[in-house]
């Protein structure tokens, strides 16, 4: 017998598909073992989940499949620590635990009718992917969609199938870049912030959503400021070490704010209100 709404008890789920995105990033598509629960499950774009490997522990990942496509939940995992290391050893058909959805989400309602500028680096495309796919599934609600995405090298670009789709679509402006020249790479070369300045998208009636390594974010924010984006027009997601996922355990707090519960999605205006402890 289990308590209803025990927030610590994961839902058992099975990995139905594993996609090797890059040499050290894999995406996992999982489905709850309880079909009825899977049918009832809902979440908002930007929310995260805790993946469990029982015996090793839990780690937090954004649900990067969109809520408009509920056949499975997809998480992308970069091999970094204990849990991610073990996750990388799992195979299709293996069981994991899922605690989701946790945290807040992108304010997509407020973005309706606006131009959307996505700026991502490396695995930072994961949280953007859920929103991009969600917007493409509700394409009429939004004005122009521009995606600037970069990685170190072409093999480090995530979601290559998606990138192909978006490139082919007329209603998406996809700009890809890699850090340095690479055999057979015929697209842009240069860091994401530099490309942002070159492309120089207008800030008018635009929302910029950015996610990537801290150093990229830092320069992207500077670039956006130069392009006259206001703090309220810039949205990003934060990452912290998390355990409970419900705003108690005290690991992910920045001042009074808990990234796991009050985040991970923040506007730059909100971030400027909290103490700088990243």
């Amino acid at each position: 017998m289990t308590t209803v709404n025990n927030p610590y008890l994961p839902e058992l789920a099975t990995i139905t598909k594993i996609i090797e995105e890059t040499p050290n990033i894999k995406s996992y598509q999982v489905v709850f073992d309880d079909q009825e629960k899977m049918g009832r499950f809902s979440f908002e774009p930007g929310q995260v989940g805790q993946l469990s490997v029982f015996g090793t522990g839990e780690s937090t990942f954004v649900i990067n499949s969109p809520p408009t496509r509920m056949e499975y939940l997809q998480f992308s995992v970069m091999k970094a620590g204990e849990v991610t290391g073990v996750l990388h050893d799992l195979a299709e058909g293996d069981q994991v635990g899922v605690r989701a959805p946790l945290g807040n989400w992108f304010p997509y309602e407020e973005m309706k009718g606006k131009k959307i500028l996505f700026i991502g680096g490396g695995i930072g495309l994961a949280p953007l992917r859920t929103l991009i796919l969600f917007m493409l599934d509700n394409r009429d609600d939004y004005d122009d969609i521009t995606i600037i995405y970069g990685a170190r090298t072409p093999p480090d670009l995530c979601y290559k199938d998606d990138l192909k789709d978006w490139e082919a679509r007329a209603d998406v402006n996809l700009i890809l870049t890699v850090d340095a020249e690479y055999p057979e790479w015929d697209k842009r070369i240069g860091f994401v912030p530099t490309v942002l300045s070159e492309v120089a998208p207008s800030s008018e009636n635009t929302v910029a959503i950015t996610c990537g390594p801290p150093i990229m974010i830092k320069f992207v924010l500077q670039g956006l400021a130069q392009l006259k984006f206001k703090d309220e027009q810039i949205i990003t997601t934060l990452e912290k070490r998390m355990k409970c996922g419900i705003g108690i355990c005290g690991r992910c707090n920045i001042g009074s704010m808990y990234v796991c519960k009050d985040g991970p999605v923040f506007s730059l205006a909100q971030l400027k209100q909290i103490p700088p402890e990243l």
Partner: peptide, 19 residues
């Protein structure tokens, strides 16, 4: 002080998630 840690401890084929 109410902060905590959650860890898994396994021995053989079974284990516990402890706080």
């Amino acid at each position: 002080c109410y902060c905590f840690n959650i860890t898994d401890e396994q021995a053989g084929s079974s284990g516990e998630r402890i706080r």
